[in-house]
């Protein structure tokens, strides 16, 4: 039978190992270290079509992730999607005439919002709105347009 002291030490090591594992999951496996949705400032944007955009999709400028999509709602009066982005507070130099587009990373990748900076002196603040937006590309529409233009070319020949 082990001494009580030894048992206590081993149990202490066991609990410590559990904490280390949890720390590992927090820092290395999950996004806790990178960014928590509680901080930063919120900006809204309206899109005609958001395609496959989801809550927690990234918001990027120049390819660097600045924040995430935190809410997607449907505005019944304007028939548009109202997307709320939360941008990390360290990135507070975004002009208020910034252009927001929905891109796809890779051919089959997930969709994200790409920001193209405008030239305004005014910066976006909490609760601001990005007015210039471009909808997601819907593959069927593009193929449809392509076929349609092809057919027209044929027709003129």
């Amino acid at each position: 039978m082990m001494k009580i002291r030894q048992v206590e030490i081993v149990v202490g090591a066991f609990m410590a190992a559990g904490l280390v594992a949890l720390f590992f999951l927090a820092m290395q496996v999950s996004n806790l270290s990178a960014f928590t949705t509680g901080e930063g400032y919120a900006v809204t944007a309206r899109f005609d079509n958001i395609g496959g955009l989801k809550v927690r999709s990234p918001v990027a400028m120049a390819g660097v992730r600045l924040g995430r999509v935190v809410e997607i709602r449907y505005d019944q009066s304007s028939y548009e999607a109202l997307v709320t982005l939360r941008i990390e507070s360290q990135y507070d130099q975004i002009p208020d005439d910034t252009f927001a587009k929905i891109y796809t990373s890779g051919l089959l990748g997930e969709q994200y919002i790409g920001l193209d900076p405008g030239g305004s002196e005014e910066m976006l603040v909490d609760g601001g709105e990005i007015t210039m937006t471009q909808s997601a590309l819907v593959l069927e529409e593009i193929i449809g347009q392509f076929l349609f233009s092809k057919a027209e070319e044929k027709g003129f020949e």
Partner: peptide
């Protein structure tokens, strides 16, 4: 391997729910 993991695994949603 790690960056995709960190980008997609959420602390509250995934880790805490697992616990």
């Amino acid at each position: 391997f790690w960056s995709q993991m960190q980008a997609k695994i959420d602390w509250n949603e995934d880790v805490i729910n697992g616990v």
